[in-house]
């Protein structure tokens, strides 16, 4: 990687900070995203209504349901899977009004699943605060068979659907919530570069 290089299509992830003024706040986190929620509640938090949606994730190294239950003083709903969290979110979005601020934390794959829900409800991606937590693993879209492999840790990996060895291109689609994966040995079949864990 050179100096001055960055993935221009990739959004910047930041630390969650309460956004005011607002009429309400909805915080959505999964797995290691729990730490970002705890950090939020260490800040002076706003008087407006706050809701927190959280789920433990099997893929996470550390989960936060227990500690969140003790510490979050506001309305907290613990879901038992990402799927049930997303369904719960979809329902809640129907009752949200303009002026509600949104916060999301977790792995890149988790965050972009959440953002697909908020986007469908009319919230623009740029208006959602995002914090990447726990892992640099990338969701990768296989441009050949059009499936997304979640949580890719290596520069080159076999597609979970078609098995082609994919190189992860530095190009990110917010609509798909994934990086582009392109067959690495198409020019010279079998010539696969050394596989390294680059997204721990």
């Amino acid at each position: 990687m050179q100096r001055g290089y960055w993935i221009r299509s990739k959004p910047l992830y930041d630390s969650l900070v309460w956004q005011t003024p607002a009429v309400a706040h909805l915080v959505i986190a999964g797995g290691e995203g729990g730490i970002a929620v705890l950090k939020l509640f260490q800040q002076m938090y706003p008087k407006d209504p706050i809701q927190v949606l959280y789920t433990d994730l099997a893929t996470a190294n550390k989960n936060y349901s227990d500690i969140l239950q003790q510490i979050v003083p506001e309305e907290l709903e613990l879901c038992d899977s990402e799927e049930s969290l997303l369904n719960n979110l979809e329902q809640r979005l129907k009752d949200c009004t303009m002026g509600t601020h949104f916060y999301v934390a977790g792995s890149e794959a988790f965050m972009w699943h959440v953002l697909q829900k908020t986007r469908a409800a009319g919230v623009q991606d740029v208006d959602v605060q995002k914090e990447l937590c726990g892992t640099l693993a990338r969701p990768v879209y296989c441009v050949h068979c059009k499936t997304i492999t979640r949580d890719v840790h290596h520069n080159v990996f076999p597609c979970s659907n078609c098995g082609r060895h994919l190189f992860v291109r530095d190009h990110f689609s917010r609509r798909l919530g994934a990086y582009m994966g392109v067959m690495v040995d198409a020019e010279e079949p079998g010539n696969i570069p050394q596989i390294e864990e680059v997204y721990p």
């Binding site: 001055g4 993935i7 221009r8 299509s9 990739k10 879209y141 441009v143 059009k146 291109r169 530095d170 190009h171 990110f172 689609s173 917010r174 609509r175 798909l176 582009m180």
Partner: peptide, 23 residues
């Protein structure tokens, strides 16, 4: 490049991979 992948991107996201240009 792929429209299936790039659909929905803003102007600069879409041109993200072009080297020597953004700079």
């Amino acid at each position: 490049w792929s429209i299936a992948f790039d659909a929905g991107m803003s102007f600069k996201e879409w041109h993200g991979p072009v080297p020597q240009a953004n700079e």
